[in-house]
Amino acid sequence: MSSLFCCGSTKPFRPAYLLHQAKFTAFMTWAKFPRSSSPAIDDAERVDLVALQPPYAIQLVQQVNYGPLESKRYFVPIEGSETEFVEVVEDDLLQANFKKLNSYKNFKCEEHDKFFEVNVYQKDPVNRHHWRVNIARPGSTIDL
């Protein structure tokens, strides 16, 4: 398990009120330091997003300020709760056909020189009869 944020002094960077503000607020309230999480690695413990059908997913990107990317992590709300989240892997979002929305918030930690980006993903609204996983799109390009 690893901590989601480096410490408790992470502050919003250029805050703005967005259309999906409630999703950001719910996630940030849950993710407060010292919250830690890790995705289920083996198939027996993994979350089936196709069956669960979460309303949205959150991507948490951590990097050194103006430096290299340290991690990309994904979270979905637990069924029946908008205040509890579970970590999933990127491939789960691909299989469930989630797409990145143009809605994000940035956070910064001056103490550790870290920058955090929080993005919202939602299921792509397509005709389910004709839907299939886009096998031509590799997992590392999900957030283009």
Rank of each mutant, 00 (worst) to 15 (best):
V47I: 08
V126L: 04
V120G: 01
P39H: 07
M1S: 08
S71L: 03
V88P: 12
F75P: 07
F13A: 10
E82L: 10
Y17L: 14
L19S: 15
T10S: 06
P54E: 01
K99G: 07
L69E: 07
F85G: 08
T29Q: 09
V120N: 01
R46P: 07
V50D: 00
R132C: 06
Q62I: 04
Q62F: 00
E79I: 12
I142P: 06
E110Y: 06
Y56P: 13
H129A: 13
S3V: 11
Q21M: 05
S2D: 03
H130A: 06
G139N: 13
Q63R: 15
E82K: 14
R46D: 00
Y66R: 14
N102T: 13
P12V: 08
N106K: 15
P54K: 03
P54R: 06
P54Q: 04
V133H: 07
Q63D: 00
N65P: 09
K99I: 09
V61I: 09
D43P: 12
N127I: 09
L49K: 06
K32D: 09
N127M: 02
F5V: 01
F5A: 01
P39V: 06
R14A: 11
T25E: 14
F107W: 15
R14C: 10
K72E: 03
R128G: 13
K100Q: 13
L69H: 13
A40D: 00
L101M: 07
V61N: 04
D91M: 09
Y66L: 06
L144W: 09
S36Y: 13
E117F: 05
S2F: 04
